[in-house]
Design a protein around this nucleic acid. Structure first.
Lengths: 239, 239
DNA sequence: CAGTGGTCTAGACCACCTT
DNA sequence: AGGTGGTCTAGACCACTGC
């Protein structure tokens, strides 16, 4: 294990090194990592130090461990990522899985705001997707997703858009979304979306601006969505 | 350390025992706990086991530890609890501290919904507070708070209502709010609140239904609030 | 300086899974 | 049975705080 000049606990250096391998794609989603003993021997530290790094990565949803089996790279399946980041619920708290329809896909230059949010050069190329999402056959979300082409080359040429984009990001582009930041406001629904969400012109809707963060900490996606909350609610929890 | 019949890891038993002391009020907020060594000796386990329990409690915001000083019961100061649970932000992400004005306080029987949410007997007595909260002099939240009298005896007789109720709950009633669950919808502002929030009748606002959870896991407060989100946004993050 | 929590190690044993 | 992660221990040393 290489020592850095500024003091860092050993387990933190191990953590950084292992996380780097995930970012690099050295270990792919659902793949098994070497055992604690093997990693400890390779990195020249004790088993306990490796364990501390691994457990921190589990806490951050980067890895999954199972007693008796091994340590695996966390996988974003359709189910799990929809379950984690899709916030609409029945008012009683029951969670549901949405259906998704891609309405359009287009390439264009980033706006100023977008280039700031995505931390890309002004007027870089982005892809804009328009999606309509439904729960139990009822349209509930009209969503505009903006992706930098530099991160997702030719994503507008994709034929099959999965229900959860995050699985596509992971499988085709090596992007693992680990967290999202949402900003919510109430507003009147834009006229052009009213029909699509089965709402009267001027109905109150929730606008959700989201930034999605990759395992390496970069914002790689931003979206702006209108949520119809007459039948479902946006649920969240704070600790 | 007493062993239970069903298997529990030692550190979990230590965790339960220490948490129980917090619930009991055996250790008060801001008070220092005995050192790891002392606790280990008292409970008949090793220092490492105590540490694992303590660190879990730190992760849950129950304790705070400082190298060289000691372990302290987490305190809900005005600042910290407002910072944690007050979600309105400037659109650029900057967080602000609200001012609060109590408009009314009344005792009444719980509604059916309230008794379910608060897990109390139907028609138990509750206190309802009406509060108006402002940011930078601008009214932004109209809030109805419902509290079971059984948990907060005579809270309607309180003279000084602090800016953050949570500090009052902690200091006078031994209630430590550790998490909140919010359900959000967009709706038209109720006519009677429009004036108070400086909004036109029929303006879209965000309705936030909140349940607040005590250290022992009980829901001890529920509230229903209308947020004006024309100038500020409700910010949240998911991992 | 003494006392606290934080890191790191090494080894023993347990619980679980696969073969 | 053999390998994995999970628990628990004991001891050494480090980093920080306050007297």
């Amino acid at each position: 294990m290489t020592l850095s000049t500024s003091f860092q606990p050993l387990y933190k250096q191990v953590y950084d090194q292992l996380t780097q391998r995930l970012v690099n794609g050295h270990w792919k989603p659902a793949e098994a990592l070497p055992s604690e003993m093997a990693l400890a021997a390779e990195l020249g530290v004790s088993q306990g130090t490796v364990r501390k790094a691994l457990n921190q990565m589990v806490a951050e949803n980067l890895l999954e461990r199972q007693q008796g089996k091994g340590t695996y790279v966390a996988e974003h399946t359709q189910e799990s990522s929809l379950f984690r980041f899709f916030r609409l619920r029945e008012p009683d708290g029951q969670s549901l899985i949405p259906d998704t329809q891609v309405l359009s896909s287009a390439r264009r230059a980033a706006t100023k705001t977008e280039s700031i949010k995505l931390n890309i050069k002004g007027k870089s190329q982005v892809v804009q997707l328009l999606r309509l999402r439904s729960l139990q056959g009822e349209p509930v979300i009209m969503e505009k997703v903006v992706l930098p082409l530099s991160v997702f080359p030719n994503i507008d040429k994709e034929l099959e858009m999965p229900n959860s984009l995050y699985t596509l990001y992971q499988d085709k582009y090596g992007i693992s979304i680990v967290s999202v930041r949402d900003e919510l406001r109430a507003t009147e629904i834009p006229d052009e979306y009213a029909d699509k969400l089965n709402l009267a012109v001027g109905s109150p809707v929730m606008m959700v601006e989201r930034q999605s963060i990759n395992i390496d900490g970069r914002v790689v996606e931003c979206s702006e969505a209108y949520y119809a909350t007459n039948k479902y609610v946006y649920a969240t929890e704070h600790r």
